[in-house]
């Protein structure tokens, strides 16, 4: 008997499935739909229009916040991807390395620490050390918490690459750097790109940590949206959220596709 068929026969299977789908995606669809609303309401439909998108694009605050967010996300993703790549190579490729087990734990721990705790800890740390709050502090915090996210697809990829390739490169007169540059880096590249994109998205939509460590004036897109919501909900927020959602979907999909196939590929 086919087990999938069995599962479908359980009472309530269909209902629960639909409930999950509706609760997960219903709100998103509603948000996206009302971003095209003609009138200033997020609950009553008044006709189709792009006017809120136009308004969002012309909003100074949103423009600045988007710019900040992109700068931070690109920089933090780059920095964290470099750290994650180095960590993956050290942990997976160096058998003699003593702190191996501990390193794996330390790298993945931030995924399990409640974000609010990380946020407060980061804030206290910056204040204690005397790092001024602003774009710089956001960038630092983002780099750190993005490392485990970048690390995951990179290790997945690296685990699929057999050790023989490195040995072959060494055997053919490549020194450590050349082995990395001409053999390992190209072979790991899909994993690195996937890690970068995951880190980029995580940084782009982070709210809690950013809210704590952002100084006055330094606003990212999620903070700006939150600010707008407090002054009243308009379809303009829907429009910005929809765009952010599309960017996220695009990057996560790309990251998934690239990271999916371990082993040699081109």
């Amino acid at each position: 008997m086919n087990p999938t068929r069995d599962l479908k026969r359980y009472p309530g299977f269909g209902g629960i499935t639909w409930a999950c789908l509706v609760f997960l995606y219903g709100p998103l669809i509603v948000i996206a739909l009302y971003s095209f609303n003609e009138i200033r309401s997020i609950t009553v439909w008044g006709g189709f229009s792009f006017s809120w998108y136009v308004k969002a694009f012309n909003n100074d605050l949103i423009q600045r916040a988007t710019y900040n967010s992109l700068i931070i996300a690109v920089s933090a993703a780059t920095a964290s991807t470099i750290c994650a790549t180095a960590a993956a190579l050290a942990i997976l490729r160096n058998r003699a390395f003593r702190g191996r087990e501990a390193s794996i734990g330390i790298i993945s721990l931030p995924l399990m620490v409640p974000e609010i705790v990380t946020a407060i800890a980061s804030l206290v740390f910056f204040v204690l050390v005397g790092i001024p709050l602003g774009i710089g502090s956001i960038l630092l915090a983002h780099t750190v918490f993005c490392i485990p996210f970048a690390y995951l697809p990179i290790t997945a990829r690296l685990e699929g690459i057999e050790g023989h390739y490195e040995e072959a490169a060494r055997d053919l007169y490549a020194d450590s750097w050349q082995t990395f540059r001409y053999v390992m880096l190209p072979m790991m590249f899909p994993g690195i790109v996937a890690g970068f994109m995951l880190a980029f998205i995580i940084s782009l939509d982070d709210f809690i940590i950013t809210n704590f460590v952002a100084g006055p004036g330094a606003t990212t897109l999620p903070l700006a949206i939150y600010g707008l919501v407090r002054t009243g909900l308009t379809p303009e927020i829907n429009a910005v959220s929809t765009l952010l959602l599309l960017v996220s979907i695009f990057f996560v999909t790309l990251s998934y596709l690239l990271g999916k196939k371990p082993g040699p590929g081109r």
Binding site: E162, H164, Y165, E167, A168, A169, R170, D171, L172, Y173, A174, D175, V183, P186, M187, P264, G265, R266
Partner: peptide
């Protein structure tokens, strides 16, 4: 990488 000997590996290890 400093030894003038080369290896043909069991599974070739050609760079993909």
């Amino acid at each position: 990488n400093r030894r003038p000997v080369n290896t043909v590996f069991q599974h070739y290890a050609l760079f993909p």
